[in-house]
């Protein structure tokens, strides 16, 4: 089989595995985002207990490799299996990579995203906050009308990078978790194909191509959101999205 035919056949056989990566990202990003906002608010809060807890969580998850986190959570779940999951009859569900993968990715992205949002929360202009209080806005109203719009606008470019890199981090899931029923993601499938015909250049190149294309699509989509968030800002003062990986696992 020629190299080109190998590429074409790989594009076909890696299409379904690519959906697994997309699934991991889609299942973890929205939950992670909501949790991250709460965690960032906790980190920003004046109560030392809340703030300390959030700081420790963020530091622990950003300071350790995702690979180890996956192993850690999986082995923890395995140890709890006999005592907890099996009596409840949920062991097949709780130990399944399609559940565990998004769980760990969510815990992980929560920490990275919270750090981004926390950084953005601190840039909310004090004058606008004072004005909101002077208007007699309730705390929720202040958050909704003043704090949040400012925060998300500042945080969005960094968050875009976080989303792209979370998507790339989904490549690690099946190296730490077991493959069930031939459900494989891009990396796992490419490695599997490699051990059949040792064609390292075709399989990994096509897998890399999938990662590049989907990352690019995420980037373009987030760019559109960024333009919308900055609709009221004069064009020359807008912050353009840059592919600048600051946060990676």
């Amino acid at each position: 089989m020629g190299f080109l035919e190998a590429i074409v056949s790989d594009i076909g056989s890696l299409a379904v595995p690519a959906l697994f990566n997309v699934y991991f990202a889609v299942a973890s990003i929205p939950v992670g985002f909501v949790l991250a906002v709460l965690l960032a608010l906790a980190r920003h809060s004046r109560r030392p207990v809340l703030s300390r807890f959030a700081a420790v969580y963020i530091y622990a998850f950003r300071g350790s490799p995702l690979f180890i986190q996956l192993f850690m959570v999986y082995s923890l779940m395995l140890s709890l299996n006999l005592s907890l999951w099996r009596p409840w009859g949920v062991d097949g569900f709780v130990l399944h990579p399609l559940f565990l993968g998004p769980l760990v990715l969510t815990l992980n992205t929560t920490a990275y995203t919270a750090e981004i949002i926390f950084g953005a929360l601190r840039t909310v202009p004090q004058g606008e906050l004072d004005a909101a209080r002077a208007y007699g806005m309730s705390p929720w109203r202040q958050f909704r009308s003043v704090i949040w719009p400012n925060t998300i606008r500042v945080a969005w470019p960094a968050y875009t990078n976080e989303v792209v890199f979370l998507f790339q981090a989904t490549a690690l899931v099946y190296f730490a978790l077991p493959v069930v029923d031939q459900q494989r993601d891009l990396m796992s499938k490419a490695t599997d194909l490699f051990y059949r015909d040792f064609n390292v250049f075709a399989h990994y190149a096509v897998a890399a191509g999938y990662f590049l294309v989907i990352s690019w699509l995420i980037f373009v989509g987030c760019g559109a959101v960024n333009r919308r968030l900055n609709a009221h800002v004069a064009p020359q003062r807008r912050v353009a999205l840059r592919y600048a990986p600051k946060y990676l696992r």
Binding site: Q168, A171, L172, M187, A190, T191, A207, A208, F211, L248
Partner: peptide, 12 residues
């Protein structure tokens, strides 16, 4: 190299 996951290049 920045556009693909590090683990991919690490294996490749």
């Amino acid at each position: 190299v920045r556009g693909v996951p590090d683990v991919l290049f690490f294996l490749f």
